[in-house]
Design a protein around this nucleic acid. Sequence first.
DNA 1: TACGAACTGAACATAATATAACATTATGCC
DNA 2: GGCATAATGTTATATTATGTTCAGTTCGTA
Lengths: 259, 259
Amino acid sequence: MPRSAAQAVARRRELVNILARRQSLSIADAAGRFGVNGMTIRRDMKMLQDSGAVLRCYGGAVAAQRITFEFAFDERRRSRLAEKRRIGRAAAGLIGDGQTAFLDTGTTTLEVARAIVARGIACRIATSSLVIASELWGREQIELVLLGGQVRRGSPDLVGPGTELMLDKLSADFAFLGSEGLDVARGSFADDPLAAQVAGHMAANAKKTVVVADHSKLGKVGSVQYLPVGDMDVLVTDKAAPAEIVAALRRNKVKVVVV
Amino acid sequence: MPRSAAQAVARRRELVNILARRQSLSIADAAGRFGVNGMTIRRDMKMLQDSGAVLRCYGGAVAAQRITFEFAFDERRRSRLAEKRRIGRAAAGLIGDGQTAFLDTGTTTLEVARAIVARGIACRIATSSLVIASELWGREQIELVLLGGQVRRGSPDLVGPGTELMLDKLSADFAFLGSEGLDVARGSFADDPLAAQVAGHMAANAKKTVVVADHSKLGKVGSVQYLPVGDMDVLVTDKAAPAEIVAALRRNKVKVVVV
DNA sequence: TACGAACTGAACATAATATAACATTATGCC
DNA sequence: GGCATAATGTTATATTATGTTCAGTTCGTA
């Protein structure tokens, strides 16, 4: 029974704060401190570990060295995290040392970024997402380029003519693009026109265009199309993807990777 | 029964205020506090989330958290903080509502950014510093533009041809530039060539160039000059600035503000 | 190495909350 | 005053966070 003023997010923030001050925190201590069941803390810690804020260990958690953290994405990020992670790993496998990639905004592309770090690939990444930038900044093997532009209010992403100007001066081996809806007839959709423009320019300036989207996006349409099926080289999606859509895409010469 | 629209606006403002003071606010608490239905608060929170002021979560909302770039900058930031803060306040006083400013990298320019927020100036800011961007992101009255470019390893700043390309497409009323050394004969210095290039382009594309530097920088030279004294419109510095340097700058038509 | 205690994760139950659609009522404007 | 509009309330249905139990695992220790 969710308590009225429990505020799970606030509790998780406080957990991170406590862990920033002292080295470690036990489940029992945390549970007592917040007056909740240990299972709740365990679930919190799992989430916090997923977003890189803490490191779990038997009986509790210890502080992670990286403090960089963004809660705004938690809700979205939680949904289908496992699928997105698998998708991210598979997509990251496409890129090799010394290559260059564009990384679009979104939770799935964030997982691509993490997988690139985890695989230790030495490459150059140009991104329009400040969340991805904060994730990649300081990584030894990553040469990070941030596309300029206007910073959106709702989410920290770059959009607008400045972003597009810069994209048109760059070229990359891969563009990893998220999707808010993918239709066989009409291609891939973004959720707003500005973001669609950016994604379109990424695709135009990359040798290979890779769309990463979990199964929930397939067969849906979003608000603005940014990529026709003909310009899509690869789609990475998960096993729950509808077979007929996968087959139709393959007939259209899209390489579909199912993980 | 709709109360006046003014009341709704006031309520939302108050919700933001409450969340600025305490960590979280539950729907039930807020509804009781204002004597309205929970659904009304939910709708308020949705609006506030869309404008980036708060972050909704199950059962209520928490204060919007911004992305933070953690780095070794903190120690430098603390030195002469009081002077830098005064300098920042004075510099921010130059810019008015509706104007545009470039903000260079550095601890003093960070204080300019904070002072602009504190004064509630509604303006557009274009910056090459991710620290300043993370400070300004989500502020209601600030239109934030991030210059693109390569992200430096040591500190999260943008440099390189991409940054300069973008600067040359923009123009601003003011360029607020930091300094690592300021010599009357040779002008203002940066600590490395890439940063100097960026600062130089900012100055070139702004109507007024404002250098912000505490007294410890005056009379010193840095490694790379980016601005001759003839192109400097204003210097904001603190009271401990050597009188002869101030006088010499004024003879060169630089407006020197001492705080 | 073997033992017990502590911990974990999955699955389920449940209460609180969210959402969406519709109803209601003030308000501003002509 | 009457009408369109916007703000708010209401209700039914869908989600979500949390608690609970239990089988399996890990840890410290004898």
